[in-house]
């Protein structure tokens, strides 16, 4: 018999599936301004999913995630505008460059832990931004615009281009969600989830903490890099402070994940939705918008450390996207109802 929480859960799952399907067709029914906003939403969602994986599961509280977004942006410009490759193959190549840069960055920051690691990642990001400003072919300190030929190769009409970039962002966000889902369901993923809850306890039952951290750090870098490439396509230009923006690609992302619910699959999705709703409907308030966002995140944290999703999850019998493993024996499954009700 479906109970009220189960009914709510089914409703949410249906809603989630419906929204994903509707978003796949976004450019057909959204007006150009909306297409731009949703594209931006999808890029930020990718960044939020990645930060959640790092800080929420692997305990790598990075404040330098914008480093790889910027590296992706600059690599994308290099491959497409300077090397003359087509923009589509430049995106995965930008991801690859982010991955390559992530290796020495990791070796450096993994010597540090907790707050020191956070500062370390920030320093790495600042250094990379300064280096980017020295690259004359990339316009030096003031940056440069994407050549018009590349812009036109995405589509001759503006709306066609916006649709192409939209679908690229949609594909990347979908890939990020798929990869996260299957990662969290995997052997490594259950270990990561155990680490999230108790790191020492996880080590004591055989979870290789170091390997899990390396995997997360190197696994998120290409996604950040590809997001940087797509953001560059949308913004049509690169510049050190904009392409390596700590505010847009790290600080807001941290707010989103914290508000939505750190250490859960749903958290970054909910947080990014809340952020965009606040931004769209409160933007006329100017700076107040950000003050409200900050206050809101503090209130959420004070009430429930695991964010809005942690709060909402109490009403539900299961996650919207069920990453947890269930026992296989039918005897245990039949007890499920009584266990969740107690």
């Amino acid at each position: 018999m479906p109970t009220a929480p189960n009914l709510l859960l089914s409703g949410l799952r249906l809603l989630f599936a419906a929204v994903v399907i509707a978003m796949a067709a976004g450019p057909y029914f959204l007006d150009p301004t909306e297409v731009v906003i949703v594209t931006e939403f999808l890029s930020m969602l990718v960044l939020a999913i990645m930060w959640n994986l790092l800080a929420g599961y692997a305990d790598i509280v990075t404040v330098g995630q914008h480093a790889f977004v910027g590296v992706g942006a600059y690599a994308f410009f290099g491959f497409s505008a300077l090397a003359g490759l087509d923009p589509y193959s430049s995106i995965p190549l930008a991801g690859l460059v982010a991955l390559i840069i992530a290796v020495p960055a990791m070796i450096l920051v993994f010597r540090l832990r907790t707050a020191y690691l956070a500062i370390g990642t920030w320093v790495v990001a600042e250094v990379l931004m300064l280096v980017a400003g020295k690259l004359q072919a990339w316009g030096g300190g003031s940056g440069t615009s994407l050549p018009i030929s590349i812009v036109l190769s995405l589509g001759r009409a503006r709306n066609d281009r916006l649709a192409v970039i939209y679908w690229l962002a949609f594909a990347l966000a979908a890939a990020a969600m798929f990869v996260t889902y299957f990662l969290l369901r995997s052997r490594i993923g259950v270990g990561l989830t155990a680490m999230r809850d108790n790191e020492e306890g996880a080590a004591a039952i055989g979870v290789n903490i170091t390997r899990a951290r390396i995997l997360c750090f190197l696994g998120t870098a290409p996604f950040l890099g590809m997001a940087g490439a797509i953001i560059t396509m949308q913004k049509l230009r690169i510049a050190p402070p904009a392409s390596f923006s700590i505010t847009d690609f790290t600080v807001f992302i941290i707010f989103n994940v914290v508000i939505g619910g750190i250490g859960s699959f749903e958290g970054p999705i909910i947080g990014t939705i809340v952020y965009f709703l606040l931004r769209e409907y409160l933007s006329e308030l100017g700076t107040w918008n950000l003050i409200l966002l900050g206050t809101f995140s503090i209130v959420v944290i004070l009430i429930e450390r695991r964010g809005l999703w942690g709060l909402f999850r109490r009403l539900l019998a299961d996650d919207i996207v069920p990453v947890a493993h269930k026992p296989t024996q039918p005897a245990v499954v039949s007890r499920r109802l009584s266990a969740t009700e107690s």
């Binding site: 259950v190 270990g191 989830t193 039952i205 055989g206 493993h325």
Partner: peptide
């Protein structure tokens, strides 16, 4: 005790069997 507080009791034991016990998922 160091339980994995937000995982089910079943998953707590399962993850130990997978990582420390080197068992397959099934």
């Amino acid at each position: 005790p160091k339980p994995f507080t937000h995982m089910s009791t079943f998953e707590n034991v399962m993850v130990a069997a997978i990582h420390g016990g080197r068992s397959s998922m099934a």
